[in-house]
């Protein structure tokens, strides 16, 4: 299949840059992106985790802990910028800082994360994964 090398997000331009990521279950980690694979598993260096609120696992606190060089799995959202968008079709996290927009036109799913528009979605596999991805993320937030 031609979509073998495709990823939902093109993370190549963020290699060696600081990124903030959120994992399923609500863990939030920042670090320097060192590598990734098709499933959006990431390698982060000098990673720091923001500890979660004991009462609400979707909220993070100011408490942090250092993790060092890590691999993180089950990425649900890559937060690369603080949001600078407006519009009611955006989904915000509970802190109101981050946005994710679902675009469905003629059966094609697009996903916009902050300033990144991901309308160039190739294979059915990617679309399927994308649906799953959106579904899981939406389920977590709503």
């Amino acid at each position: 299949m031609s979509g073998r090398k495709e990823t939902v997000l093109d993370l190549a331009k963020f290699v060696d840059k600081g990124v903030q990521v959120k994992l399923t279950g609500g863990r939030q980690v920042t670090g320097t992106l060192k590598g990734y694979d098709q499933l959006l598993n990431l390698v982060l260096d000098e990673a720091v985790e923001f500890l979660r609120d004991a009462d609400d696992p979707l909220k993070t606190t100011d408490q942090t802990r250092r993790l060092g060089l890590i691999v993180c799995f089950l990425l649900i959202l890559v937060i690369l910028f603080k949001h600078s968008q407006e519009g009611s079709s955006f989904i915000r996290s509970r802190t109101g800082e981050y946005v994710l927009k679902f675009i469905v036109t003629r059966g094609v799913v697009g996903l916009q994360m902050n300033r990144l528009t991901l309308d160039d979605i190739g294979s059915i596999e990617i679309k399927r994964r994308m649906f799953h991805f959106c579904y899981r993320f939406a389920g977590e937030l709503l």
């Binding site: 290699v15 590598g35 990734y36 598993n41 990431l42 390698v43 993790l67 691999v71 799995f73």
Partner: peptide, 27 residues
Amino acid sequence: NTNPSQLLPSELIDRCIGSKIWVIMKG
């Protein structure tokens, strides 16, 4: 690996075989 400057997640884990690792679960 198409981009040798990058570190693949599976590669990093492979390097950890035989050593002590710290696994953090979703929960």
